[in-house]
């Protein structure tokens, strides 16, 4: 069983664990925030399912920003507060667009999400979605190499061991498969007008 209440010395320690993609750090954020956030969403006319979705999306957005350096940890900042804000913003954006689609008025004084941020997030999500589709269209052997190398971040040496191949051959295969993937991605992206 995972340790559900992992302890971190301070927020810096947690920040570094998140950067390392340490499972204990993800478990900690779930244990600390998931219930409170669920309660907050339900109070704001959402359901438990909405809360789970917004929590996953908000947390993902935060972690992407943490990894690409857009979020820089500063001493004195509580990471749980920042994550909660990301999730809150995600829910308010989604609830806002739902109300808009349904022509209902916004009755509460929700802070509107930053438009540029939302557009950027939608574009990012669209690119990721097309990349997933492109990956699915690759043949099994290529898909495995791409999955292990780019998604699981497995070193080439380990992939070579798994496939019983030489590392240089795996390196060439990775090149070959990535180029194939890009070709499919370009076609799909053009079709989708990206």
């Amino acid at each position: 069983m995972p340790n559900v209440f992992p302890r971190f010395q301070d927020d810096r320690d947690l920040y570094e664990a998140l950067l390392r993609r340490d499972d204990r750090a993800f478990d900690y954020l779930y244990a600390e925030l998931a219930h409170t956030f669920r309660h907050w969403v339900i109070q704001h006319n959402g359901t438990g399912m909405d809360a789970e979705d917004a929590f996953q999306k908000g947390l993902l957005k935060f972690l992407i920003n943490l990894e690409n350096g857009k979020y820089q940890h500063q001493a004195g900042t509580r990471i749980t507060t920042v994550v909660f804000d990301y999730c809150k913003k995600t829910w308010l954006t989604e609830a806002g667009s739902y109300r808009f689609r349904n022509r209902a008025s916004l009755s509460d004084a929700s802070d509107p999400a930053d438009t540029a941020d939302v557009v950027e997030e939608m574009q990012r999500a669209a690119v990721v979605e097309i990349m997933k589709q492109a990956l699915l269209q690759l043949k099994d052997d290529c898909r495995r190499v791409i999955d292990w190398f780019y998604i699981d971040e497995m070193p080439l040496r380990e992939i070579a061991e798994k496939l019983n191949m030489r590392e240089t051959s795996v390196k060439s295969k990775r090149y070959d498969c990535t180029e194939k993937l890009k070709g499919i991605y370009r076609q799909l992206a053009t079709k989708r007008g990206l």
Partner: peptide
């Protein structure tokens, strides 16, 4: 970056 996001 897409595959990093998928990994996350």
């Amino acid at each position: 970056s897409s595959f990093r996001a998928i990994g996350l």
